[in-house]
Every structure is written in structure tokens, then in C-alpha cells.
């Protein structure tokens, strides 16, 4: 049986892992390669690295980091943050990334998704969506959550998959950093809107939150950062708990 995936996310700034709350208030959380190795050894199913600075001068640093990660770890990993072109994707994949995630640039220019998918295949293309509930609708936000767009989240997900996105990484900004549980409703709405795997992100605080995610939605993966970085919920205990709940886990 296909297992549900537990995915630690490492936000990268200047080569270090950092973690903010509600997209703000950055704290240092360690060396990405060391953390990546630790997570892989503990049973993480995949890893996601997001370069939150994503400036031109940081690109070389990021590529070197990706090469080091690829040399050291033996599970799949995704790299994202500020990706704007097929050329950047080519460099990241050549450096050893298994998948790339795109966000704002795809909103600005959706054809980027079809360009990446046609050259490298949908299997390596993750569309990251930052979403927030405004009282009526779930809307797509860009630029690290700083800018609201007119896009409805489910519409955007559906369109992006048509263009070639092979997976959706959905972050609820309302939930991110709160540790009050995943955004179950919008996650399930996106699962129903598309036929590709959906990774839920934002709000994980305890093992029960993952159990709710996997029993109440069709998400195939749950992503979290701080609870893993600060060892509040070690991956082995999380997996042990999910096993007792009869959730298929590796």
C-alpha cells in the first residue's frame, strides 16, 4: 500500500536553516545538510528546501548547497524559492534536486509550468500555493505571502495541473506557525479539485494533527518545519503514533 509521506521543510537563508512564524520573525535552526541527514536517518520520506532569500547573488550558494545535499542524502528532495525560469530549473536538477517547486513566478507567468513540465516532466514539478482565507474565499498570495492576488485557490490549482504541475504544496497562511493543526477544509477542497498528490503545510503542532490530516482529507503528505527543527515532535515518535492509528506509514 502507498504510504502517507512525512516531509520536513527547511527554509534556507544564506546557507542556514531558519524558521519564522506566520511568515515573519526569523529564527536560526541550524545547518541544512546536517539537519537533512538527521531527518533522512530518522525516517523522513522526502525533504523540501525553500530558499527564502532567493536573490541572484544567493543562487550560487544555493546550487552548492543542493550539490552537498544530493551527495549526502538518499531520499528524494525538492528545492524551491524564487524560481523564475527553465534555466534555473535545469541548474537545480543538474545539481541533484529531484523536484523543484515554483510559486510566484508561475502566478505571474503560468506558461512557466508547461515549459518546465515539457522539458523535465510533471513528476519533478511542484506548484507551491500560499493561501489565506479572507472571510469569504481562499485566495492565492505571492511574494512569500506579502501580496494578495485575485486568484481563487482551487481554480489556480486546477489550472496549474492542466499546465503540467505534478504535485501541489498547499500552505495555509492562516495556520502556518500556529501549531493548531492543518487547514483541513481547503486541503480537502484542493484534493477534490485535482488528481495529483497534495502536500498539506502549515499548522502542524502535534502527532494528532497529522492523523486528522490523513483521515479527514486525501492529502498524501504532511509538511512541517519548526516542530521537527526544535525536536518538539521527533519523526520516529510521529510515525509510531500514526502506525497505532492504522495510517499507512513507512
Amino acid at each position: 500500500m502507498l504510504k502517507k509521506r512525512i516531509i520536513p521543510c527547511l527554509d534556507i537563508r544564506n546557507g542556514r536553516t531558519v524558521k519564522g512564524v506566520n511568515f515573519e520573525g526569523i529564527r536560526d535552526a541550524g545547518d541544512p545538510v546536517e539537519l537533512a541527514k538527521k531527518y533522512a536517518a530518522e525516517g523522513a520520506d522526502e525533504l523540501v528546501f525553500l530558499d527564502i532569500t532567493a536573490t541572484v547573488e544567493n543562487r550560487t550558494t544555493l546550487l552548492e548547497l543542493v550539490e552537498r545535499i544530493a551527495a549526502e542524502i538518499d531520499i528524494p528532495f525538492t528545492v524551491g524559492g524564487g524560481i523564475q525560469s527553465v534555466e534555473e530549473v535545469r541548474r537545480l536538477i543538474w545539481a541533484g534536486a529531484d523536484k523543484v517547486s515554483v510559486n510566484s513566478a508561475a502566478v505571474r507567468r503560468p506558461e512557466l509550468l508547461s515549459e518546465i513540465a515539457s522539458e523535465f516532466g510533471s513528476q519533478c514539478l511542484v506548484l507551491a500555493i500560499d493561501t489565506q482565507f479572507n472571510g469569504n474565499d481562499w485566495k492565492v498570495f505571492v511574494k512569500g505571502g506579502r501580496e494578495e492576488t485575485s486568484l481563487q485557490t482551487a481554480d489556480w490549482a486546477r489550472y496549474a495541473v492542466e499546465l503540467g504541475a505534478g504535485e501541489i504544496l498547499l500552505t495555509s497562511m492562516n495556520h502556518d506557525g500556529t501549531k493548531n493543526g492543518f487547514a483541513l477544509e481547503i486541503t480537502q477542497a484542493i484534493c477534490e479539485a485535482v488528481q495529483v498528490p497534495v502536500i498539506a503545510s502549515g499548522g502542524a503542532g502535534k502527532a494528532e494533527d497529522f492523523a486528522s490530516l490523513f483521515t479527514q482529507t486525501k492529502a498524501t503528505a504532511g509538511l512541517a518545519a519548526s516542530i521537527f527543527h526544535y525536536n518538539e515532535l521527533p519523526i520516529p515518535s510521529l510515525k509510531k503514533y500514526l502506525n497505532t492509528q492504522n495510517i499507512p506509514i513507512r
Binding site: L2, K3, R5, Q195, V196, R250
Partner: peptide
């Protein structure tokens, strides 16, 4: 069918 494609993740 209606299932999620691609088959992505760990399977026995």
C-alpha cells in the same frame, strides 16, 4: 481511473 496520478511515494 479516479485515483491520484502519479503514483508518488513509498510502497511495499
Amino acid at each position: 481511473g479516479e485515483a491520484i496520478v502519479p503514483h508518488m511515494g513509498w510502497n511495499n
